[in-house]
Write a protein that binds this DNA or RNA. Structure first.
Lengths: 189, 189
DNA sequence: CGAGAATTTGATAGGGCTCAACCTAAGTGG
DNA sequence: CCACTTAGGTTGAGCCCTATCAAATTCTCG
């Protein structure tokens, strides 16, 4: 799924993607208003949990309370990285960085096969996450292929040169704070 | 103060400004690593509060615990707005939006005089918050002046046409969640 | 097979960057 | 008190990255 916002001209800016297992709205209980929309980018199974229930669980179980806070911090961290990405990297690098992040997050969710994964996003949607147009997204993608970093078949992405992609994107996994992730899922990253 | 990050080429991206009274690092107790630097943009008085102490206070005083969470949510909200700003608005609008935010945040901190305020930032630093160069920041500023939205004397900003600036920037205060702010400080915004 | 959606490619325009110079204001030191 | 220095603001010219417009091609799926 994705969290996004539409501006006055109709242009969409994606604020984050949510992979299976993620919360979408965990810490909005304090807000009178939220400033974004949430939508699916593919088939999704959604569970609704009232904020009351989350708070109740937090009171009863400090360890889970801590986990909830950790999740919120993680989202913050990703958002910060996106701002940095959009604000400071040229578009091919920006795309490379986004793909690195998605690979790792999907991998941590058990949804990849080595460096090969299914990405349910159109190039238009990728562009909306980076603040660039469809056409330019396509050309940036072409660039990454030309550099021999990855190949595409439909929406299957195959990162043929992971170290190269990471280096190209100046990608540093640490902001995803995977320290508590099942090690077998993220080894070699 | 500001939170920022420097990329491989030496380019700086500011992630947020912190006005007097703000925390800079409230919710990083859960992290093994943080991905940014913090620096001053002018004279500053800084108080250090250990995370342990914050947690202790939170346990003893649920109302303050709630406030701490609210502060974190607020930062999240601002970060999100910045991503939207940088990702989707042309540079003069982007600058206008940033100035709207700074005016209101400084005003809520009691540091403005009507629509007139002192902004301790160079144009270079403003540019770093928007992902554009010094020169272009200067030209965008010129644009805002030409539109009759504000005037500058040194670093004193005078927003001569607040409704105009707000409209120009497509600025909607709600993301700053000022509902609990002393009303006299923010009336007429 | 046909139709709509997504990807790809080309040509052109424009926003923002780079390089460079100039100007102003505010120190600094003799 | 003034020459000198330095940081920041302003302006101009040319180029490059990205947007826009448009059309062709490929893919997907009923």
């Amino acid at each position: 799924m994705r969290r996004y916002r539409t501006n006055v001209d109709g242009k969409v800016q994606t604020l984050n993607f949510h992979v299976p297992g993620d919360f979408c709205n965990l810490h909005t209980n304090l807000a009178q208003s939220i400033e974004y929309s949430i939508g699916t980018v593919g088939p999704a199974v959604i569970a609704y949990i009232p904020h009351d229930r989350i708070e109740e669980i937090s009171r009863q179980n400090p360890r889970l309370a801590r986990t909830f806070n950790w999740l919120a911090f993680n989202e913050f961290s990703i958002l910060q990285e996106w701002l940095f990405n959009v604000g400071s990297r040229p578009s091919p690098q920006r795309l490379a960085h986004l793909l690195c992040e998605l690979l790792i997050r999907l991998r941590a969710a058990g949804l990849t096969d080595g460096h090969h994964f299914y990405l349910p996003l159109s190039q238009a949607q990728l562009g909306e996450a980076m603040g660039i147009t469809i056409v330019h997204t396509n050309r940036s993608m072409g660039q990454l292929r030309k550099e021999g970093l990855l190949t595409l078949e439909g929406r299957k992405v195959d990162v043929t040169n992971w170290p190269g992609l990471k280096k190209y994107a100046d990608f540093d996994v640490r902001y995803l704070h995977l320290d508590n992730t099942e090690p077998s899922l993220i080894k070699g990253l």
